[in-house]
Design a protein around this nucleic acid. Structure first.
Length: 429
RNA sequence: GGAUGGGUGGCCGAGUGGUCGAAGGCGGCAGUCUUGAAAACUGCUGUACGUGAAAGCGUACCCUGGGUUCGAAUCCCAGCCCAUCCGCCA
């Protein structure tokens, strides 16, 4: 969330940013309520001060009668304070809700526009979009012909949006993880395998809404736990409430997790195959940085994503996401979109990774701070996240782009040592 | 899951109802001394919010959340975490 003081001091800019992002947030009401709250807080503190004074004087009271009188005075003040406090808390809760609805500010270079049509292409990968001399199949047909993806089995055991990976698809998924994690260790990331569940307040801190009608999150009944939609949640939550030394930053960490998403409301534009599913595996990068480092580390993460998909030989473009298409916590977001020959009519670009600079929007709620040696006070760190690989989407791109006229699929060179073969052949019936 | 013992400032550790934001030590910072360093000595050394030009002042915080009380680090209840033992399990 944004800092309340910042909102009060930058009302016009905050409102304009909400408009650019297509977010309806009642900034005026927040401003009014916050000034009421501050007045109330003063009252509470004043009453507390007087009550403390009275309490201290009781020990030194001369006689029993005076003691009793003072006690009565203390009781009265505490009751009064209690009433004041609950008024204050009501206001505070209301403000918190309004505050949560206000998105992060936007990087000055972010294209302004209401949806993804305004996204700006900023880079291309080294692999060219291929001209097929045969009609390319999509990953669903390839997956079934090569016996790699069993959507029906997934539906039978679990439901729509779930699938079994089989045979080389399993090796491919494991190979992707090996390839990526090895690379990220070389880039200074600490590798982790994270929990697949997290507490609701961590979800909220990262900017996810765990419960409620529009949630994308699976929650565990009778607990405060939810299945994570991304390891961003657990990696970001790792330092909740922690203050680190400035010279430890930037902290780079990556995590392998399963990701679970209800995809509520997405059925209208339901996508064939494993493009949009309820469970997938992902390697996520995460960084905690000093404020002045975050733009640079954001570029660095984007560069790593490009390097990964260049080495995998997947054609892609990078877009600078428009204001209207940014998530609430993101200050700026770059998406890698791979060319998927089997998607739509004659192929189309499909998102494969995404990296966001969330500045201090997440850390403020998670209370992740840093302290500079020899300086007084603490400040909120900046947080960044980026997909290293979302296994399902990467698999789509690899299968569809690397398919051959004979129905086989060429395994990307960099994955061969883990997959153990150069080519995935159709299974003979 | 059961039993027992614990969770206090950057770290160690004292503190069982008021004078405690918290002894003492370590570490850190500044100074005295010294050619320099060490030692010794002196002082300072948590966070957040509010207020103020500032010094300062006020409020809250001793795992978390409730409760008792005029007053809680201290008493009560619940929870979480850690240690050890037992049970169970991959």
């Amino acid at each position: 969330m944004l800092d309340r003081k910042f909102i009060l001091e930058n009302v016009a800019a905050v409102k304009q940013n909400c408009r650019h992002r297509g977010v309806a947030a009642d900034v005026d009401s927040l401003v009014a309520k916050e000034s009421q709250r501050l007045a109330k807080l003063k009252e509470v503190e004043e009453l507390n001060r007087r009550a403390n004074e009275v309490s201290k004087s009781i020990g030194k009271a001369k006689d029993e009668a005076e003691r009793e009188a003072r006690k009565e005075e203390g009781r009265r003040l505490r009751a009064e304070k209690e009433a004041c406090q609950s008024e204050h808390d009501t206001l505070d809760g209301a403000i918190r809700e309004l505050q949560a609805a206000i998105p992060n500010m936007s990087h000055p270079d972010v294209p302004i526009g209401s949806d993804d049509k305004a996204n700006l292409e900023v880079r291309r990968g080294t692999a060219e979009v291929r001209d097929f001399d045969f009609p390319p199949l999509d990953h669903v047909d390839l997956g079934s012909k090569l016996d790699l993806i069993d959507l029906e089995g997934g539906a039978r055991t679990t439901g729509h949006g779930f699938y079994f990976l089989r045979n080389e698809a399993v090796l491919l998924e494991l190979a992707l993880q090996q390839f990526i994690v090895t690379k990220l260790i070389g880039k200074g990331f600490t590798p982790t395998i994270t929990p697949d569940l997290a507490q609701d307040d961590i979800l909220e801190g990262i900017g996810f809404n765990p419960r409620g009608p529009e949630t994308q999150v699976y929650s565990i009944e009778g607990s405060n736990l939810s299945l994570v939609g991304t390891a961003e949640i657990t990696l970001g939550g790792l330092y909740a409430g922690v203050t680190v030394d400035a010279d430890q930053l930037p902290i780079r960490i990556c995590g392998i997790s399963h990701c679970f998403r209800t995809e509520a409301g997405a059925h209208g534009r339901a996508t064939r195959g494993i493009y949009r599913v309820h469970q997938f595996t992902k390697v996520e990068m995460f960084a905690f940085t000093l404020p002045e480092q975050s733009d640079q580390v954001h570029q660095e993460i984007c560069d790593i994503e490009c390097e990964i998909f260049n080495e995998l030989g997947v054609p892609f473009r990078v877009v600078d996401t428009a204001t209207g298409d940014l998530g609430g916590p993101a200050y700026r977001k770059f998406d890698l979109e791979a060319w998927m020959p089997g998607r739509g009519e004659g192929g189309s670009w499909g998102e494969i990774t995404s990296t966001s600079n969330c500045t201090d929007y997440q850390s403020r709620r998670l209370k992740t701070k840093f302290k500079r040696k020899g300086e007084k006070g603490t400040h909120f760190v900046h947080t960044l996240n980026g997909t290293a690989v979302a296994a399902g989407r990467a698999m789509i791109a690899i299968l569809e782009n690397n398919q051959q006229a004979d129905g086989s699929v060429v395994v990307p060179e960099v994955l061969r040592k883990w997959v153990g073969k150069e080519r995935i052949e159709p299974k003979s019936a």
